[in-house]
Write a protein that binds this DNA or RNA. Sequence first.
DNA 1: TATGAATGAGTTTTCATTCAT
DNA 2: GATGAATGAAAACTCATTCAT
Lengths: 197, 197, 197, 197
Amino acid sequence: MTEPLTERGARTRERILDGAREVFEEQGFLDTRITHITRRARVAYGSFYTYFPTKESVFFELADRLFEDMHTHEPAAGAAPAERIRRANRAYYEAYRRNARMMAIVEQVASFNEEFAERRRKHRALHVERSARAFRGWQRDGIIDASLDPETVARALAAMIEHSLYLWLVHDDPGGDNEVLLDTLDALTARALGLPS
Amino acid sequence: MTEPLTERGARTRERILDGAREVFEEQGFLDTRITHITRRARVAYGSFYTYFPTKESVFFELADRLFEDMHTHEPAAGAAPAERIRRANRAYYEAYRRNARMMAIVEQVASFNEEFAERRRKHRALHVERSARAFRGWQRDGIIDASLDPETVARALAAMIEHSLYLWLVHDDPGGDNEVLLDTLDALTARALGLPS
Amino acid sequence: MTEPLTERGARTRERILDGAREVFEEQGFLDTRITHITRRARVAYGSFYTYFPTKESVFFELADRLFEDMHTHEPAAGAAPAERIRRANRAYYEAYRRNARMMAIVEQVASFNEEFAERRRKHRALHVERSARAFRGWQRDGIIDASLDPETVARALAAMIEHSLYLWLVHDDPGGDNEVLLDTLDALTARALGLPS
Amino acid sequence: MTEPLTERGARTRERILDGAREVFEEQGFLDTRITHITRRARVAYGSFYTYFPTKESVFFELADRLFEDMHTHEPAAGAAPAERIRRANRAYYEAYRRNARMMAIVEQVASFNEEFAERRRKHRALHVERSARAFRGWQRDGIIDASLDPETVARALAAMIEHSLYLWLVHDDPGGDNEVLLDTLDALTARALGLPS
DNA sequence: TATGAATGAGTTTTCATTCAT
DNA sequence: GATGAATGAAAACTCATTCAT
């Protein structure tokens, strides 16, 4: 049984998801016990298994919602390239900061669960493809350098931004003023593309 | 009792390290059992604990050797900036490729073991500091743009390269011709720094 | 609350019994879950407990009906001994074949549930007593050998037939042409009793 | 790890087997918990799993020894038919009585574990084949009736004896003086075969 | 009556670590 | 040093039964 058929069931399921997210964020995936989740959700132990078959399955659902959230906050097209890059970076930063704890767990689970790594890969591919499309457009319009492969550039720059935020927001890698990091990421992106500053 | 006192002891210890590396690479840290290691090393179960107090401890030692290897292959100074960047990137790539399996485990363990994450952080800091020093020098010499903070740039570019290689070599994230990725990483680095090409 | 008070209730109860029999036959008693039964009966989970207090209780009721069926098909007296034995054996065989799946479960449950084993014992005693009565009559009439204890003979022959059918029809113990088995059982019974063939 | 490599290990394994047999006999297979076994064997909980992967596996090993015991006590050929049958029946009876408790469990496990049922089937086939061989010989020698199929007769008679003992010794099915049952089984066997008394 | 959610005791199994030989 | 047995604390998961609606 996974899908609740009543309003009451839906509420319980939601409480379990909320509890799970809280506990995962505090303890990480591996150190989380089902008891922790049910205790936090104020639900009987067995109720967990009424709605989820395994610990992985709750996490997967939370991660899906997370990916959804990261996606939907990507800014729409419209502005000038430099400005659009800045906005996209900031939006990603905001989303990352909002979900930093979960992103840590995402990384953790992806590091040992191949199925989940695959989901993550697909989600990343969507993100990269979106950038690549923009880059291709700007190349056609002669705004940015046309000598580089837009796909590959998109992958590399996404890696730079994602991992920089990961080290900063998740691993708390210290590095002085971090407003500077954001500005630097914008600048590096622009220069790498050959955007006139 | 950890340090072997006899020649024979030293050999046993080494076999355990070798066995551990093989098994870690095949199964990952979490799925590795002490038995797997001792079986692979052709050593009695109890012998593991003669030389290592915990499963973590063998891994830490292997990781230290690994970090050592990654470090010592960084190329010496001397060439022109663009060429030096290229060489450094290639050297890092070669080292990463050589150790890709272990790098996967490194990421895995860092994702849940705070102590190890800290070691990794320090090792990364050394690496970043080395680049930053070079950038500072080139800025002083007027070879590259002086408007960016060299520390921050070094961090961001290191993140780009490290994570790109991680996704490619560890997670096997496909992306067409991968020679192109290496060239792109070189190019992006140079442009981001404002190096005349 | 076990006895349905309304027409509708009686129907639901019957559907549960039908569903239970189907599932028991497919999965055996131990592997049957209440859910399986209610799903098969197209009835809500809770409805099971409206009519039956435990999983055992549905089974007991089904078994009672089964024993009833096995009993009512025993042929009436009347024919000559040899013919009557043949008819009785065939009738028992037909009933067993019809209910082979359930007989397997009967054996299963009797093997761990003392209460049920007792019910089965009583039912078997009725069956044995019926044969014994016939044997006693034939002894009085000088038709069969009078040197054996009719009760004991009835028990032994019943065991032979019951278990032969069990091995053949339930455990699918192969043994060549099985029409032969039936004929052999008839013959052995007749000879054992000292019936002139 | 299943096979102990040291003397000490072999002793522990044996204690577990002994403890398991005792507990199985007292509680049956289903109601036996691993704890019961280890407590009885005066061994740590985990030691069970040092030597056996599952509860089934200990039981299988015990059953193999049991079958072995039942087999090896079958009497050798040599005597006259009637006497040989009597001896074989008594030997089987003695073995059954000695192992009645375990035979109950054997029946229980065979009723829900297909793998075990298969082992049992093979063991029974050996037993039946042995009788059938003797019957064939006696038919060739004109000692017993040649009109019946010796295989089928062997199966039916084995079923009679096995199940009679089962009901008597395991289910304690009462039936007056039970010396009489043994004599009756001998007599029925002889008559069924057409042995001159 | 019917429905489906809630409950939690009970069991198996795993495996790092400790010991005895 | 080397070997392999012994230990027992976890933890996940099941599912009959009870409740609330």
